[in-house]
C-alpha cells in the first residue's frame, strides 16, 4: 500500500506541475520555485501533514517537501532558541539534500564533460 500511495502522490504533484507548465508561459524554474513556496504555504496551513499521513516517503520526494521542511525547521528553531533560531535552524533538515547535491555535483562534474 505504501508503494501505491507514494506512486499516486509523487505522480499527482508532478502532473500538476506539468499541467501548469503546459498551460502557461512559465519555465520549469518558475514551477520549481513556485512549488517550494507552495510547500511552505501548505505546511503553514497545516495541510502538508495530511500529505505526510497519506505517504510518508512520497511526501518527502517532491520539491514541495523542501518548503515544508524549511518552514517546520525554522518554526521549531524559533520555539527552542527564539528569533535567532529561525536563522540557525532554517536549513537543518534540508541539509542532507542540499549538501549531497553540492558534493555529488562537484564530484560528478570532475569526471564528465558537456557534450557541446
Amino acid at each position: 500500500m505504501i508503494y501505491i500511495n507514494a506512486f499516486i502522490l509523487v505522480g499527482l504533484i508532478s502532473m500538476i506541475g506539468q499541467i501548469i507548465l503546459d498551460n502557461s508561459k512559465l519555465t520549469p524554474g518558475h514551477i520549481t520555485s513556485m512549488f517550494v513556496s507552495i510547500g511552505a504555504l501548505l505546511s503553514f496551513l497545516g495541510l502538508y501533514d495530511k500529505l505526510i499521513e497519506f505517504s510518508k516517503i512520497g511526501s518527502s520526494i517532491p520539491i514541495t517537501s523542501f518548503g515544508n521542511l524549511l518552514y517546520k525547521a525554522a518554526l521549531e528553531g524559533y520555539y527552542s532558541k527564539g528569533i535567532i533560531g529561525i536563522f540557525s535552524n532554517m536549513l537543518t533538515t534540508t541539509s542532507a539534500g542540499i549538501s549531497a547535491s553540492i558534493i555529488f555535483a562537484f564530484i560528478i562534474s570532475m569526471f564528465f564533460n558537456s557534450k557541446d
Binding site: 507514494a6 506512486f7 509523487v10 505522480g11 502532473m15 512520497g58 520526494i61
Partner: peptide, 13 residues
C-alpha cells in the same frame, strides 16, 4: 508526468 513521477515515488519507496 504522472507515470514518471509515480515511478520515482515507487523507486524511492
Amino acid at each position: 508526468a504522472f507515470v514518471s513521477g509515480g515511478i520515482i515515488g515507487l523507486i524511492s519507496t
